[in-house]
Design a protein around this nucleic acid. Sequence first.
RNA 1: GCCCGAAUGGUGGAACUGGUAGACACAAGGGACUUAAAAUCCCUCGGCGGCAACGCUAUGCCGGUUCAAUUCCGGCUUCGGGCACCA
Length: 823
Amino acid sequence: MEQKYSPKEIEQKWQSIWENEKTFKVSADGNKPKYYLLEMFPYPSGRIHMGHVRNYSIGDVIGRFKRMRGFNVMHPMGWDAFGMPAENAAIQNKSHPATWTHENIAYMRNQIKKMGFSYDWDRELATCDLDYYRWEQKLFLEMFAKGLAYKKTSFVNWCPKCETVLANEQVEDGGCWRCDSEVNQKELDQWFFRITDYAEELLENTFKLPGWPERVLVMQRNWIGKSFGCEIDFPVENSSQSIRVFTTRQDTVFGATFMSLAPEHPRALELTTTERRDEVAGFIDKIRKTDRIKRTADDFEKEGVFTGSYCTNPLTGARMPIFLANFVLMDYGTGAVMAVPSHDQRDFEFAKKYNLPFKVVIQPAGTFLDPLTMSEAYTEAGIMTNSGQFDGQQSNDAKEAIADFLQARNKGAKTVNFRLRDWGISRQRYWGNPIPVIYCGYCGVVPVPEADLPVVLPKDVAFSGEGGSPLARMDSFVHCSCPVCGKAARRETDTMDTFVQSSWYFLRFCCPDFNSGILDRDSVDYWMSVDQYIGGIEHAVLHLLYARFFTKVMRDLGHISADEPFINLLTQGMVIKDGAKMSKSKGNVVDPDALISKYGADTARLFSLFAAPPEKDLDWNDQGVEGSFRFLSRIWKLVHDRLDMIQGARPLDAGSLSAEERALRRAVHKTIRKVSEDLEERFHFNTAIASVMELLNILQPAALSTPQFPAIMKEALQSVILLMAPFVPHITEELWQRLGNSEHLTQIAWPDYDRSAVVDEELLVVVQVNGKLRSKITVAAGTSEDELKTLSLADEKVAQFIEGLTVRKVICVQGKLVNIVAG
RNA sequence: GCCCGAAUGGUGGAACUGGUAGACACAAGGGACUUAAAAUCCCUCGGCGGCAACGCUAUGCCGGUUCAAUUCCGGCUUCGGGCACCA
């Protein structure tokens, strides 16, 4: 048997054994607790990168560990296969997105298989496959029937480079999340999902997800952006109508001296007097031409125009001029804002510019605000002043009181507002799921009847690379007859956002072959929710919010029982090299293929798990990889060196061991305990591996010439193999077999530590004087506190430090530490 | 501006509910083996002082609580992330 560790053959050997025996195939099983483990599925971009290696290595350790712990582990893998890169590549290479995508999937599947991950490949799915997207179309129609999918004309984010609409969540810092081009606004008729219907529950449940990282929950809460406030009506002068505003600062109503409307406000022109009409219309036109992203930038100059009309402050009766202001947004609140120059910075700047009145209604404790000398708005809480009956109250208390006051007089109502917008899902691209809708000149928007599903994405399209989606130019696709009246009609040519597919793939993994409906409820209810989800933090709001939304929609449509998709979420850090994220443009990428062929998959897995805890960024280091390979070689060599001894070992008699033998065995069982805790309780893979390294440092030089030593070594090395099995499955399977075991390691249970073996016989106690370490003493386990004190005070080194001092107090920490307080 | 994180040797990191700071690994230096190299094995490795035993000092900075603080509290600094004319 060869002595040198050569990963190539053994990895191939075990991967084909697992594949042939379908070791990781699972089905519902009432006898075992289920465990649904999922990593965010990849986009088939071409080749896997180190981020994937890390993500899936983390998942695989958990999966293999849970399996050894007796769980029925479902661990699927699939492809988020629709999307723009395929289309762009097709235009460039004059091929077809489907071809490009399927070739990439084939290549990446092979790469992933070479890593030895324990996936149930029978559940593999690709979202571009008809058997996936047809059910999504049905789901769309169900949502349409419930009003959860609807069409509206609005200003939407438009990426000129990708030539498509983007959701709010896909605009990052004013740029496209994919290509970083500057996003502008376009008024279009588009499909939306009514995620705002679920704003309250999505927010509420962030407080019921203890298995999620707090920062992800905080990001989602901020994104949903619930604020409590008041809607207040301001009667328009010489009119029976009023303007409704939303405010969170009803405590400042007495300080409102004018009104600001969004330029897009539907009543803007109606409120404009004849003599001001030209100026106002000019302003509205100018704002319309200004890009929304620029206009809403923080440092954009505040600007407005007077409409010539006035309204009345419902609490003070003051006459308030009505302005249009460029910083007021139509799609938040009511599109109208009561302006309080003394207590809002934007209103302050606006009022300075247009010479509008200031009125202080909240005074901070200690100082006195004078509207004439203020250099900025005072936006904090304070004591109410100039506010009639509310004077003297704390402004925070007055919020409630004023809201009640207004509500009682029918002048306003308490309300909440959300920052979250509905999810725009129309994409003017080819490589996506067609929205199953028909437009008829007589019947309007008509859903494609269920019997006519699926709307198949046609393959034979021409890609010109310009002028929008090729679907729109394809007559055979566009022209159809209306399902209601039979007259000539047009088919919707927009496709759905690819985030729609990733919002429910985890449900479909529960029943990937089910083809008589969207989901097989029994299977889904058995497996859901996902017990552990793992992926990058970049999806904190996007995918993770959409997936939560879809889960609730599916529940309300009667397809599933779960409320939340993911019970526990692990967000792994990025892979960094030379101080920057790995990327082609920076030239700091490490190719997984090269790594596997040089060191093997086990080394790649081990390093990515050892170098950093999973949630932190991982600094890639080629010498560190070398070190991981060295460690595996040491295990390999040690097992082979002791093979003869182990095979001749008699059964262990744990009751009759010498002190040295007990010490060795104690190290083994303490390691089992440590690794078990690190995996079970906190996913501290790096410290788990470190503790096995420590054990190996003890076992390697160990050589006792006692009769029981072979049995101890056998137990020790078997333990090392079992403990390392989730991390490095190939080398451990091979060594397990070479030790003479006939069963595969994948069938073996996780080891338990022997409670009597880990009990210390002697303890090292540190002795401090006034909190400083002065001596260390070794005592027998079970030494009493009094005895420990006596021993400490009698210690030679300690004596030097307490000489001439009075011992005031002696603190004992059982089996660990003695602190002598002297002065 | 608001809201989250984080900061420990030359480097990645460890220290779990306050109790030996620096586990484990990488790098570096020295040595053994070798004709030589690679591989492997052994030793040293926060700073300052000392031949040494050992002492002092040290977890971004300043202060506090405590017998005892990397850990808890208050105030800063720097870096990273999220949100942002959201009324």
